[in-house]
Amino acid sequence: MSPERDILSVPDTHPDAPLKPDEGTLQTRARTALAIERTFLAAERTLMAWLRTALSMISFGFTLAKFFEYVEGQRGTPIVGRFGATWSPRMVGTAMVVIGTVALLVAVVQH
Rank of each mutant, 00 (worst) to 15 (best):
R90K: 05
P3N: 02
R29G: 11
I36L: 13
P89F: 00
A49Y: 11
G84I: 04
R31V: 11
K20L: 14
L51E: 14
S56W: 06
A30D: 09
R29N: 04
M48D: 04
E37Y: 06
P21E: 02
G61L: 14
F62R: 08
P11Y: 07
R90C: 00
L47N: 00
R38Q: 11
I36P: 01
T32G: 10
M1T: 07
I99W: 04
P15H: 02
V102W: 13
M48E: 01
S59I: 00
E69H: 09
T101C: 00
A65Q: 10
V109I: 08
I7M: 07
M1R: 08
V108P: 01
Q110L: 07
D12C: 15
A17W: 14
P89I: 01
K20R: 13
Q110W: 08
D12Q: 12
E44S: 03
T28W: 05
D16Y: 07
A95T: 15
A65S: 08
L105W: 15
R52M: 08
V106E: 13
L104G: 10
T86C: 09
S2R: 15
T32C: 14
G73C: 12
R82E: 01
M48F: 08
L26G: 00
H111S: 03
V97T: 12
W87N: 13
M1V: 06
T53C: 06
A65G: 04
R31Y: 02
R52Q: 12
A54T: 03
V106G: 09
K66Q: 10
P89E: 00
M57P: 01
I58K: 14
P3C: 00
A85D: 06
L19K: 01
F68I: 10
F60N: 15
Q74R: 11
A42F: 08
A17H: 14
F83Q: 09
F68K: 02
E23I: 10
E37I: 06
R52D: 05
S88L: 15
L55C: 06
G84H: 06
G93S: 04
T63Y: 02
F60P: 09
R75K: 08
M57K: 14
L26I: 07
V102K: 11
R75H: 02
G76N: 05
V92T: 06
I99Y: 14
M96L: 15
T39K: 06
E69R: 07
D22R: 07
V108G: 01
G73N: 11
T77D: 12
A33D: 13
P18V: 10
D16L: 13
A54D: 12
S56P: 01
E44F: 09
V102L: 15
G100Y: 13
A103D: 01
V97L: 01
A35M: 11
V71H: 03
G76A: 03
A17Y: 12
V80L: 04
I99N: 08
F60C: 05
R52W: 05
E44N: 06
D16C: 04
S56L: 04
P21H: 02
I7Y: 09
V98Q: 09
K20M: 13
A103K: 15
T53F: 05
V80M: 11
A85S: 11
A43N: 05
F60S: 15
F40A: 14
S88I: 09
L8I: 04
P15W: 02
S88E: 11
S2K: 15
